[in-house]
């Protein structure tokens, strides 16, 4: 009996190991390749470790592009988007859970319906609006259409529903306004869920390529890191794989560090269904 469960466990671990490799290999390959010369990248096939360790790719990236500027641009957009998305999600879901008003549920369904509208449909009207507002080639222009998010409202509402209503009612009886109740009672109780969702918002915005490309045209000092990646990829001078890998590594670094700091919240949020008193 015991050996059976043990061998079963081994099997599971083996499967997990294969899955980890599938996910981690491209990342490791990217990291290792960024320290290889272009020649070695072409010749080495799938082998990981560089035979000749070189930082020339990084030197090239930093000398040819204002990387710190791009990093700042990416950060600014991602932070604006994350903060606003979270704020709007929290406000909307608080109202949807703790306040009574007509057509409350209909409103919620309406919000969630917007999740099913594909980006490609919104792209042109958003583009035209940003253009009309004179926000082309600005970071605000990239962030503006992303300040509210139906998915965030949905997730935060689900999380808030696990909080007993009487907590907010007790606060209301004690003369606590809705805003204070949200900030001092609801948000502290949802900290793990908020951190996890914020991470998702941040990474989504950080990784975004197509929308910033539409808005941040021409003026390449306003580029984000993801847009900068394409500057090493062009058909005329051939693709500079080494520098691309170096830049990709830099681009991956920020979400990776953030994840390391917040992973315990993310895991706890996805493992448990929330707070139960």
């Amino acid at each position: 009996m015991k050996t059976k469960t043990k061998s079963k466990q081994w099997l599971w671990h083996l499967i997990l190991l294969i899955l980890v490799l599938l996910v981690a290999y491209p990342l490791l390959y990217m990291l290792c390749s960024s320290f290889k010369s272009l020649k070695e990248i072409y010749n080495a096939g799938l082998s990981l470790l560089p035979r000749e360790f070189t930082t020339e790719n990084y030197d090239k990236v930093f000398s040819s592009l204002p990387i710190l500027r791009f990093l700042a641009n990416s950060l600014i957009i991602a932070l604006i988007v994350t903060v606003f998305k979270m704020a709007t999600s929290l406000l909307a879901s608080y109202a949807l859970v703790f306040m009574n008003f007509k057509h409350r549920d209909a409103m919620f369904y309406f919000f969630t319906m917007t999740m099913y509208v594909p980006f490609t449909v919104l792209m042109i009207p958003n583009y035209l609006t940003i253009n009309k507002l004179g926000l082309m080639s600005t970071l605000v222009g990239v962030a503006l259409p992303q300040l509210a998010d139906a998915m965030g409202i949905f997730r935060m509402r689900q999380a808030m529903r696990t909080i007993p209503k009487s907590l907010v009612e007790a606060a209301r009886v004690d003369r606590v306004g809705h805003m204070t109740a949200l900030v001092r009672i609801v948000i502290p109780m949802l900290r793990p869920a908020i951190i996890a969702q914020s991470m998702i918002f941040f990474i989504n915005s950080w990784n975004e390529y197509f929308w910033p490309m539409l808005i941040l045209r021409g003026d390449n000092t306003s580029y984000t890191l993801t847009l900068a990646l394409q500057t090493f990829m062009n058909s005329e001078s051939g693709s500079a794989w080494g520098t691309s890998m170096a830049l990709a590594t830099i681009t991956t670094l920020v979400p990776l560090v953030l994840y390391l700091f917040t992973q315990r919240y993310i895991i706890s949020t996805f493992m448990s269904s929330g707070i139960k008193e």
Partner: peptide, 12 residues
């Protein structure tokens, strides 16, 4: 002043 059935104490 109100006392609730589940006491409604703020857990944090």
């Amino acid at each position: 002043a109100m006392v609730f059935q589940n006491y409604a104490l703020y857990p944090h």
